[in-house]
Design a binder for these strands. Structure first.
Lengths: 116, 116
DNA sequence: CATAAACATTGACAAACGTCGATGTATTAA
DNA sequence: TTAATACATCGACGTTTGTCAATGTTTATG
């Protein structure tokens, strides 16, 4: 998988000015595209939304599979992409793996898109 | 191409509250994913940035091919995706096709991602 | 130890994507 | 009308992506 060779979102958001403020470099375009690609999937958007809406703003894999209507390996796959892109954090407690929003990650990307 | 069967960005941004405010619906997740997918490509991000930076904030295909290092059909392909996703508008004058930013489109998507 | 539960990883496959060369379509100029 | 220019569309290709079934790994429990 190519998606995971890339910098986490935080690096992207720290590096550059908004997309329409000045010409983006080739490298920054590539990094931002990777960050957006991690987000550009219905299942992953729903995962982020569900994690945010869940109690304590965290959720384990078992909380997500049934409402998503996807198999456990598929959900784990999406979670991995979101963690490696920097949108989620993972913490293991016992047999469970709990995922929550990485503070500022979504806002960082949003800030790069804004034109005003 | 599946990307083009989708609603333009404006519809997406008008419809719903931010991703992390409340659980997103399946349909809205699908629409937002399509809007993000149109953005999640290095060449297309560079096109948006270059159009914004260009004189009069508009550019024709011939302005883009050489700096992008891509063939003309490929650039036209990317422009089509961006127009159909609602990020760019197209106006033909003579033999040239001029593209400019669709006002509010990027901000609409950014607003959906913001958590604060 | 053996078993079960929660999750990750692997391998496979169909669908979608980015790119190009070739060709089609308007519009301008001679 | 013919030729040239700017752009769009088509068909083909290799690559990436989303999904699953099968299997591996870790942790808790009996």
């Amino acid at each position: 998988m190519t998606l995971m060779e890339l910098l986490p979102v935080r690096d992207v958001t720290a590096c550059c000015s908004p997309l329409t403020r000045e010409a983006i470099t080739v490298e920054n375009a590539s990094n931002l595209a990777s960050s957006l690609k991690a987000l550009a999937d219905p299942a992953r958007l729903r995962i982020i939304s569900m994690v945010a809406a869940h109690e304590n703003a965290e959720a384990c894999v078992c909380d997500l599979t049934e409402p998503l209507g996807l198999g456990q390996p598929t959900v784990s796959h999406h979670l991995r992409i979101l963690v490696e892109a920097g949108y989620l954090t993972r913490s293991k407690r016992g047999t469970w793996a709990y995922y929550k929003l990485a503070p500022g990650a979504l806002d960082g990307v949003a800030r790069l898109l804004v034109t005003v």
